[in-house]
């Protein structure tokens, strides 16, 4: 993802408006991006990478929509997840989902017997092969510093 915009985050530290519309803030104990942002601004984000709450952002975009900067808590939480993932610290299910995605380009396949029972036509062909080719090219390109 793009780097975090610290100037916008400075404003967050004085605002906090989206806290009151955020479903996870309102309903999950210990979920508070305001604390994460405070630590990010102080250069102390590291401790959040192993914290379960960074995965509790539902990506519902409520914060983005209400934010006068059109920024939202979600950017900070996504940044934490990205860093955590780089260190291999993802919930097990995320890892499983990722493996399946990379292998098949999908998160599941159409079920032929059920389709037949419902009288559904044969499912369209998946793009898995082209997807895998594309991923290979992408990964090679990424090793080029100019990409």
């Amino acid at each position: 993802m793009e780097s975090l915009n610290f100037k916008l985050l400075e404003q967050c530290s004085k605002c906090g408006a989206c806290y009151h519309i955020c479903p996870s803030c309102l309903n999950l104990e210990g979920y508070d991006p305001r604390a994460v942002i405070k630590d990010v601004l102080a250069g102390q984000h590291e401790k959040w990478l192993s914290h379960k709450s960074i995965w509790q952002c539902l990506e519902c975009h409520h914060c983005l929509e209400i934010c006068f900067q059109h920024y939202g808590f979600e950017n900070t939480m996504a940044a934490m997840r990205t860093l955590a993932a780089k260190k291999g610290m993802t919930p097990p299910q995320v890892k499983r989902g990722w493996d399946m995605f990379i292998k098949t380009g999908k998160l599941g396949e159409p079920v032929a017997p059920a389709r037949k029972k419902l009288n559904l036509p044969e499912a369209a062909k998946s793009g898995a092969e082209d997807f895998k080719k594309m991923v290979k090219i992408y990964r090679e390109a990424k090793t080029n510093p100019n990409f």
Binding site: E59, V94, G97, W98, F101, G105, K106, L107, A124, K125, S126, G127, A128, D130, F131
Partner: peptide, 11 residues
């Protein structure tokens, strides 16, 4: 033909 996962953003 040819679609894959959209893909799921949160993943």
């Amino acid at each position: 033909d040819g679609f894959t996962c959209c893909p799921e953003k949160s993943l």
